[in-house]
Amino acid sequence: MQKNAYFTGLTVPLLLLLPQLAITVVFFYWPASQAVWQSFLLQDAFGTSTEFVWFENYQALFSDPGYLKAFINTAIFSSFVCVLSLSIALLFAVMADRQIRGAEVYKTLLIWPYAVAPAVAGVLWLFMFDPSLGMLARGLSTMGIAWNPRLNGNDAMLLVILAATWKQISYNFLFFLAGLQSIPKSVIEAAVIDGARPMRRFWTIIFPLLSPTTFFLLVVNIVYVFFDTFGIIDTITGGGPSGATETLVYKVFSDGKGGSNLGGSAAQSVILLIMVIGMTAVQFRFIERKVNY
């Protein structure tokens, strides 16, 4: 006897899928296809004259040294932010997972920065580290440390990395903590009885069992640094000094919005889209194999 219920015909499944498909098409595929179309056009700001130019916007991008620099900046910025925010969040989560007094308060406080909007986070860090206004910047200068993110590209990059990392730690912390709490206590207790020390327990049991969480966070963090950080960069450095903190997504924003160069900006976002699709595919293809579910 057939036990599984199933539908004959396509009407009902299609109807059930329709809301989800409609949302995906209207909010994802439609704008994305608009960007692709726009990237082949050369248009004035008001849209009164339009010319189809094939790949000229792309050619212009790759002959622009600033664009190559944005790639390098993005690589530096994203690897630092991902590694720092993941490792610091993991450290905090492991600490918070132990039996300590006031753990609830500690956990709640750590989650707060996630609620801060990127632009606001940028302003907060700017207030601390602006060479004229910032309290911490003044502290640095009294200690004799040269600090000038207005002109020094490394200082500016460090500042945006710190702000972007700080903002993402909370999110990673939450997921790591949940991941740690779902590891069966019995496995760890068995290891304790076998005489494994805390460090060894962490690397041979906890870390591998956390790998699904870590993998998920890696994907989410890469999407975060690639797309969600332009508010931080805009408020802290505006891409400066001399383009030292101009990342790919910030360039999309500043060329398109500030410069009204819609074609060039659309071409950049198409490239960015392809890059992130590629990176996510690579992650799922190769890194996911090492994940223990």
Partner: peptide
């Protein structure tokens, strides 16, 4: 495109100053 051109000019001035 003076908004963008100004950004380019600032970038170059900053590159000289640093």
């Amino acid at each position: 495109s003076l908004v963008q051109i100004r950004d380019i000019w600032s970038e170059e001035l900053e590159a000289a100053l640093n």
